[in-house]
Amino acid sequence: MEVGTAHSEVNPNTRIMNSRGIWLTYVLAIGLLHVVLLSIPFFSVSLVWTLTNIIHNMGMYIFLHTVKGTPFETPDQGKARLLTHWEQMDYGMQFTSSRKFLTITPIILYFLTSFYTKYDSLHFVINTASLMAVLIPKLPQLHGVRIFGINKY
């Protein structure tokens, strides 16, 4: 969906991550978040990186893997009502370029965070846990699966 242009998507959520410039916007938003955190006094560099990582992963978890349905008025009679945004993306196609991009980004962010936290064990535990929280729900095997009924309705 490109803003300001006509589209014929039943559910714009399916293609919103394929819009022109959205990847760049997304990366810039992470950068902006990092810069804002860096500007807070008394926050060390490693703390700021860990904060960037967990805030990003928390946002990703909430918006891609928790919130279900679509903010758009759709004529699909609530087809997406029980699907997360991740599951709606590209009509459920797996391993599309948007999905790859959104899978690799948190990993790269994790590498950067690990480097800047000097591989500290406490930071490692926190960052790895938050990384797993956004990587595991992305597995194709878990498409539409609600383990232990978490977030089922």
């Binding site: 590209d90 009509y91 459920g92 196609m93 797996q94 391993f95 599309t96 790859k100 194709p140 498409h143 539409g144």
Partner: peptide
């Protein structure tokens, strides 16, 4: 090494 596919 990942080809896109529809889960169903």
């Amino acid at each position: 090494f990942s080809k896109s596919y529809r889960p169903l």
